[in-house]
């Protein structure tokens, strides 16, 4: 009963409200930047914060199906917004790396992506998310039919690549990236036993 009521309420949450809430972390980063709250190396801080926010949304998107199966609670109507927000933050994270960190040194950036496994993994995550973002609309769902579901399973390797990217760029204390990677793998494992 409780679950049914909550699902009723959740169905009433319009996607634009999710997008609005999803914009708040960005607004917070912009606010911190404007008020000097990003510390002594603001470029790294912006870059790392955006990447971390992208991970939140990736994990949130992955959590929806297990949550529904385990508890009956359904956030299916919000999933597209969560996925698109994940892509948005991951893309912004990559853009800040290329623009503010690498200062558009295209050659060095391209070489680094090919040569450094942590960057290869991060770029792979972005590349896997791109077709998902492009097909996150009703027309594509209709057009692709059953293929749409298959295509959107790319979210799984994308999330793993993102988690590995975070782990591999860490220098010494790997506790936090390991927790994130464990969460991602855990959420994927829950899908295996249906």
């Amino acid at each position: 009963m409780q679950i049914a009521k909550m699902n009723c309420v959740l169905r009433g949450v319009p996607p634009w409200a999710v997008y609005l809430a999803g914009a708040l972390p960005l607004a917070w980063v912009v606010w911190l930047g404007a008020t000097g709250g990003l510390g002594i190396d603001p470029v790294k801080e912006i870059e790392h914060r955006l990447g971390k926010i992208g991970l939140w949304f990736l994990v949130a998107g992955l959590a929806i199906t297990p949550l529904r199966r385990q508890t009956g609670l359904s956030l299916l109507r919000q999933r597209r917004a969560l996925g698109l927000l994940a892509f948005f933050y991951v893309a912004l994270h990559a853009a800040v790396w290329l623009g503010l960190d690498m200062r558009l040194l295209w050659e060095q950036a391209a070489k680094d992506i090919l040569k450094r496994p942590y960057l290869t993994a991060g770029m792979a995550a972005l590349a896997l998310l791109l077709p998902l973002a492009l097909t996150s609309n009703d027309a594509s769902v209709r057009w692709l039919g059953q293929g749409w579901r298959k295509l959107h399973r790319l979210a799984y390797p994308a999330a793993i690549a993102a988690g590995v990217h975070y782990l591999w760029q860490t220098k010494a204390d790997v506790t936090e990236p390991l927790i994130w990677l464990a969460a991602i793998l855990g959420l994927l494992a829950l899908r295996l036993r249906r």
């Binding site: 603001p42 690498m102 070489k111 942590y118």
Partner: peptide, 22 residues
């Protein structure tokens, strides 16, 4: 000679601000 995980060819000078070149 690069660090395996990043190039050592350029550096970011701390304190240059968000738009300082490498």
């Amino acid at each position: 000679v690069d660090h395996p995980r990043w190039s050592q060819a350029t550096e970011r000078r701390i304190g240059g601000g968000i738009f300082a070149p490498r």
